[in-house]
Computed example of a mutant assay.
Amino acid sequence: MAEVKLKAVLRTDFGKGAARRTRRDNKVPAVVYGHGADPKHVALDGHALMMALKTPNVLISLDVEGKKELVIPKAVQREALRGFLVHVDFLAVKRGEKVTVEVPIHTEGELAPGGNLLEHILGALPVEAEATHIPEGVTVSIEGLEAGHTVRAGDIPLPRGTSLAVEDDAAVLQVVAAQTEAPTEEEAAAEEEAAEAAAEEGAAAEEAAETPAAEG
């Protein structure tokens, strides 16, 4: 994974008001922590950071007023409606250091015919990898899988140097049977009318059977 170089400035003002002022300047407030050091409160260019975060678990070479360190994003807060960045937590890492992250799960292939559905039980796969070699994702083949099949964490091939950070038998994906669509209100009313008519016809036939025929 290539490093993305970003610059940051130290923040000395804190609180909601200070954060709003930072965002008005098109910057994103963030904090850098890890390795037992005191957290650093910084601000980064909003557009540059947004582009960097398009890559999951991106490795960033962060220049904080001339002092450089490697970091990865650990928590990203976004505005609920418009999705713009509100705050980012960065974890300081070192080359050769193992970190635990969640990587995206991609699928390839087609399920067996029948209109079945693929359910993602885990939205991402927890793995442990070297900080400078975090995989961008893992790929799972679902070719020909039928209803009832479960893909477990141990079934997923991992890149070299990456290991699971979850139990092997943890369910990741599951194929569920297609469900019959519920009838519309018109269809339900028609079925009810048909049932009532059938019941009336049955009652009339029963009554006719019980009535003795007139003597000639």
Rank of each mutant, 00 (worst) to 15 (best):
D38L: 11
D38C: 01
H41A: 14
V42F: 07
V42K: 09
V42T: 08
A43F: 03
L44V: 08
L44E: 09
L44A: 03
D45N: 10
D45M: 03
G46H: 12
H47T: 13
A48K: 09
A48N: 07
A48Q: 13
L49D: 03
L49T: 06
L49G: 08
M51I: 04
L53G: 08
L53V: 06
L53W: 08
K54G: 09
T55D: 14
T55F: 08
P56H: 08
P56S: 04
P56F: 07
V58L: 06
L59I: 14
I60Y: 00
S61H: 07
S61W: 01
S61N: 10
S61D: 11
L62G: 04
L62Y: 03
L62M: 12
G66N: 08
G66L: 03
K67Y: 00
K68S: 12
K68Q: 11
K68I: 10
K68E: 13
E69N: 04
E69K: 00
E69C: 11
V71L: 03
P73Q: 05
K74I: 08
K74S: 07
K74M: 13
A75K: 13
V76F: 05
V76I: 15
V76T: 13
V76M: 04
Q77I: 01
Q77S: 07
Q77Y: 09
R78S: 05
R78F: 04
E79Q: 12
E79I: 02
A80I: 12
A80H: 14
A80E: 11
A80Q: 15
L81A: 14
R82Q: 13
R82K: 14
R82E: 09
